[in-house]
Design a protein around this nucleic acid. Structure first.
Length: 114
DNA sequence: GGTTTGACCATAA
DNA sequence: CTTATGGCCAAAC
């Protein structure tokens, strides 16, 4: 059977992953994608967040693989993201970068019923 | 129900 | 450093 990692409800799973990241920690699009089953769906993670309309999801804890904030078009979002992370105690580099190696949170691949 | 639109990552040159 | 390319698809319009 074709292992289609991304199916309907993919967004929901992305949100669940983001929600499990504790304050003061961050994760990357690629990590979420990998935790969902395939590192190639990183784009979907970004797309999912772009479509995100749920304020309960701490999307600001998601940064790209370089530990920088990515914005495409609207830089206000990036500014807001940085502000929120700093509010949680996440330090930023003068280049707008954060210590990913120290803050990266290990996601749990899917919590199937034990 | 087809078209548009998206916040990525790794690799190569 | 920048630029280009391939990989992947659902949701909104």
């Amino acid at each position: 059977m074709a292992e289609r990692v991304v199916t309907s409800g993919f967004h929901q799973r992305v949100y669940a992953m983001v929600c499990q990241v504790p304050a003061g920690r961050v994760t990357t699009y690629g990590d979420i994608a990998a935790a969902l089953g395939s590192p190639r769906v990183a784009r979907h993670v970004g797309w999912a967040l772009s479509s995100l309309r749920d304020p309960d999801v701490p999307w600001h804890r998601v940064v790209n693989a370089k530990g920088t904030i990515s914005v495409r078009g609207d830089t206000r979002r990036g500014t807001l993201q940085r502000a929120r992370l700093e509010a949680e105690g996440v330090p930023f580099d003068s280049r707008g970068r954060l210590p990913l190696d120290h803050l990266r949170f290990t996601l749990t691949p899917l919590e199937v019923a034990p």
